[in-house]
Design a protein around this nucleic acid. Structure first.
Length: 491
RNA sequence: CGGGGCGUGGCGCAGCUCGGUAGCGCGCCUGCUUUGGGAGCAGGAGGUCGCCGGUUCGAAUCCGGCCGCCCCGACCA
């Protein structure tokens, strides 16, 4: 058996069954595991470490743009959720409700938050009196629960971790600017940190967040050609303000409803990372997010050699750490070097340093990249000093290499140009396209027909920087195009 | 929620057709030898066969019910 070997050594290849590959790689790289709770996963240290690095980067960006963190309750009174009509319509099917506590039925049930707009804006209503209290720019890191029918590790779980930002502004223009600012932050984060370049733009009305006026989204293209909604930023208008009495007195002395935005990214990003960079060996973690960037593997025959080599390995780790590199030595004696190589490659550690007795003698190390650019060897024998000095540059180069590869793939899997029928759209998708640009009349019936016929949906009405040079004139569903849309089959 | 599949040591599976009290690989433990791409040998631990009931002298195996998980379809960060 070449593909599915005995035991848990081999991975199903991506080409054979992408979905099986994903499930296996997430577990075998020890990112996450299934839990005893239906639809809920355990995020293991390696996966959580990646999430922590994501959190840190995003949190810094939020803070740098004037946001502060706060924390609101997990349980939300049922009546709050029900207040905004569209909102409750959207979330009702996936609510988990607490009806019983302290041995008694509750007078009013609580829902386990699926998102926190209602409870947050109810509090904002209390805190905001004057235009001087605005803008109010808060974020919370939290868990939420949505009772999904079909779950997948990281991509769709009943409980997931995320951040949700909630802001209140005095004017529509300011709220709109905030929603777009965050969209830009998400995009920058995905490109600079995840090396996962998304398309950004507006959601069609049918895909707009329940309770929002407009939703903006980052859509990333996975290796199998399916799109992943990786982050959303919503312009909520005054919908929640009106329901929760979030008013303020304007400069002119009038009482006005505040304008809100909300925005979030979740642990789904970890799944996106896996499906963007992973290969048939395992996960590939971009250096900037890797919990361990360099793994040092000592190689020794005898106990004396082991002691000497381990000492050298520890010294290398220390030097790398002094240089700001996240490095660790794998000193386990019961595993062969080869076993360790496979394990760390499966987990996606960007760089490996091998150090054996011969290397110690010669003052050299073996530097190995998780993935090398086309035509370059992964393994290099370098003088120790040179190798260690080289590490930061190698990490940086790998980060850039991953982004380039992901962007090239996205472009190669993107189809542009006029699409004059739904059948044609389906053919383009079936021929291997991921994102398909077309004109769109703006008619929701076209979306329905396309979905029925091709399973694709409008992922985004592209923002300016993602539009085609020549605007399409025809709608894929017939008639004239009012705008350009990007279609894809999605997760 | 509809269709399909699967529940047997930690993991992956065989055994079920044709009932007779459980086996293989990996992993784990101990010892020795090993270690430059998934080490070898020897010894060892570990299983109410998803749950409940029925048939039978006897059930992993046959029958009924239930539960759970995975995959495919309708909704979603």
């Amino acid at each position: 058996m070449s593909k599915k070997r005995a035991g848990k050594r081999g991975l199903t290849s991506r080409g054979e069954d992408f979905s099986a590959w994903y499930n296996e790689v997430v577990q075998q790289a020890e990112l996450a595991d299934y839990s005893p709770v239906r639809g809920s996963m355990v995020i293991r240290p390696w996966g959580y470490g990646i999430w922590e690095n994501m959190q840190r980067a995003l949190d810094d960006m939020f803070k740098a743009s004037g946001h502060q963190n706060a924390y609101f309750p997990l349980l939300i009174p049922m009546s709050f959720i029900e207040r905004e009509k569209e909102h409750i319509e959207g979330f009702k099917p996936e609510l988990a409700v607490v009806t019983h506590a302290g041995g008694k039925d509750l007078e009013e049930p609580y829902v386990v938050r699926p998102t926190s707009e209602t409870i947050i804006y109810s509090m904002y209503a209390k805190w905001v009196q004057s235009y001087r209290d605005l803008p109010l720019l808060l974020n919370q890191w939290a868990n939420v629960m949505r009772w999904e029918l079909r779950t997948r590790l990281f991509l769709r779980t009943a409980e997931f971790l995320w951040q949700e930002g909630h802001t209140a502004h005095a004017t529509e223009a300011e709220a709109e600017e905030e929603a777009r600012l965050i969209l830009g932050i998400y995009r920058r984060f995905m490109e600079d940190w995840m090396a996962m370049p998304p398309l950004t733009g507006l959601k069609s009305p049918s895909e707009t967040f329940a309770g929002a006026d407009r939703s903006y989204a980052c859509e990333a293209l996975m290796q199998d050609g399916k799109a992943l909604q990786a982050g959303t930023s919503h312009m909520l208008g005054q919908n929640f303000s009106r329901q929760f009495g979030l008013t303020f007195q304007s400069e002119e002395g009038r009482e006005e409803y505040a304008w809100n935005t909300s925005w979030g990214v979740s642990t789904r990003l970890v799944g996106g990372l896996v499906m963007t960079h992973g290969d048939d060996v395992g996960v590939v973690v971009p250096p900037k997010l890797a919990p361990t960037q360099v793994i040092v593997v000592p190689i020794a025959r005898t106990d004396e050699q082991a002691a000497a080599v381990m000492q050298k390995a520890d010294a290398i780790v220390e030097r790398l750490r002094d240089g700001g590199v996240r490095a660790a030595a794998d000193g386990r004696r019961h595993l062969s070097p080869g076993a360790k190589f496979f394990e760390w490659e499966r987990k996606g550690v960007p760089l490996r340093v091998e150090i054996g007795p011969r290397d110690v003698e010669r003052g050299q190390v073996v530097l190995v990249r998780r993935v090398a650019p086309e035509g370059e060897k992964r393994k290099e024998f370098l003088a120790e000093d040179r190798a260690l000095k080289e590490v930061p540059a190698r990490l940086k180069a790998l980060q850039a290499q991953l982004l380039d590869a992901a962007r090239d793939r996205r472009e190669n899997m993107t189809h542009r140009g006029e699409v004059s029928s739904i059948d044609e759209l389906g053919e383009i998708l079936d021929a291997g396209a991921g994102f398909v640009y077309s004109g769109w009349s703006g008619d929701a019936a076209v979306e329905d027909r396309v979905k029925e016929a091709t399973k694709a949906t409008i992922r985004v009405i592209p923002g300016e920087e993602f539009r085609s040079d020549a605007a399409p004139s025809r709608c894929a569903g017939g008639g004239r195009a009012a705008m350009e849309a990007v279609w894809a089959r999605a997760y």
